[in-house]
Nucleic acid binder design. Structure first.
Lengths: 228, 228
DNA sequence: GCGCTAATACTCTAGTTCGAGTGCTCGAAT
DNA sequence: ATTCGAGCACTCGAACTAGAGTATTAGCGC
């Protein structure tokens, strides 16, 4: 675990809810959902109950009462403690002020990209761009609805952030796909050649045994020791 | 589990390595590290061995031989299977072509942002901007080194992507902080007032009981049913 | 008054992830 | 000759996560 005894961001959302008033876990989940927080913070029951238990164990929230109506399951109402408020403020401040390495799936994909032939990658990135366009349109539509309701911008910040990141991704992906298609991205020729040779039945090892011979000068770097 | 029987992106990296030649897990880890993939794909031993075992169980890789030198721990060499190659190509194609919801920590922070007073949030975002600037400089420095070595752009794609996202985040964060400081972000006045009242000792519930009275017209929306 | 769906409020467990810890070897410096 | 640290090659257990499953009740149409 990291520095924080409870590290799941869902715990932060729980503390946030309980700062307003005492609630039981299920109520927390519906509150979060009704405010659309589930789009920014992963919420599922298993994690929610685990996180609540863990917060209680660490004294950040405490059990206020357990009630039951009829033969429904029990409801345990929790409230935030002093320590919980401090933790909430401190954690939130850290989230806002300190960038962390988030491993995104596209970054993983890009780093292994040479495993597929360049033209296929360009095509796939084109598909992604199309899908990103659709997502962006959905966000714009949601914002239009919000504007009609005169919902203040403060409540749309997460979505605006998403929009901004999605746009940046769209631009990157589009220009990368172009760069690959036009061979203007350095190294694309060797990459293309590599896959042509593999399609002809040569193994990766055979090609690498004489990289410069097979792939041309561009591949010289592959035969020298790896960078950094 | 998601659609994929092995879902950790590290498994994709393992398949990628084994497509080049058979290796043992530790060698996979050093290969990945020497190529800087660990910056794009989370790599740690526990996960690596778990993932290798799982890939084997699902027939995507197979045990080739187990050797031991002296009294060192055994080394089990794995190779990729036909099914493994198919899975690799299919998975990589999916990663590149299909955007997924990644829950980033900043998005979580932004969605709970009103839990801290506006001016503090603006300050914290300023701090983040400064840290982002430092990261960006580090990437630029690394790119300069790579350019000196004539390393083709294809191998820098992940980093270029990071740079692009970091820049977008920087711009967003900077303009958000400005918007808060200047009250030009809609809703900031009510948000500020809310924290002033809390500082004076009123509870969240008391304030919400007469939101419009306390916070002004801007808070009218808070009293009507939540959007979507 | 009877079945149906939706909502309520969790529970369960298989699977995954983390990273510190272990025990070995090798080469360089004392 | 011997200590020392770096690198090798994993192992282990505790914590965490996912999301399907369970059991109840309220409301609604017929």
């Amino acid at each position: 675990m990291s520095r924080r005894r409870v590290s799941n961001p869902l715990a932060l959302a729980v503390l946030s809810c309980l700062s307003e008033r005492p609630m039981h876990p299920y109520e927390i989940s519906t509150t979060l959902r009704s405010r659309g927080k589930e789009h920014s913070i992963k919420l599922n029951y298993g994690s929610l109950y685990a996180v609540v238990e863990s917060l209680e164990k660490h004294g950040l929230i405490s059990r206020r009462e357990t009630t039951r109506e009829g033969r429904r399951p029990e409801r345990t109402v929790y409230e935030v403690t002093e320590a919980g408020i401090t933790e909430f403020e401190d954690w939130l401040a850290e989230l806002l002020s300190t960038p962390v390495r988030d491993f995104t799936s596209l970054e993983a994909g890009l780093s292994l990209m040479p495993g597929l032939p360049p033209d296929e990658v360009a095509r796939l990135l084109g598909d992604r761009a199309e899908r990103l366009r659709i997502e962006l349109r959905a966000i714009d539509a949601a914002h239009a609805v919000a504007a009609d309701m005169a919902l203040p911008d403060v409540f749309l910040v997460e979505t605006s952030y998403r929009r901004c990141m999605l746009t940046a991704e769209f631009d990157f992906v589009t220009s990368l796909a172009d760069g690959i298609r036009s061979d203007s991205l350095n190294g694309t020729k060797a990459w293309r050649r590599l896959h042509e040779l593999r399609a002809e039945g040569l193994s990766f090892e055979e090609i690498m045994a004489d990289a410069v011979g097979y792939l041309g000068e561009e591949a010289r770097i592959l035969t020298s020791p790896p960078e950094q």
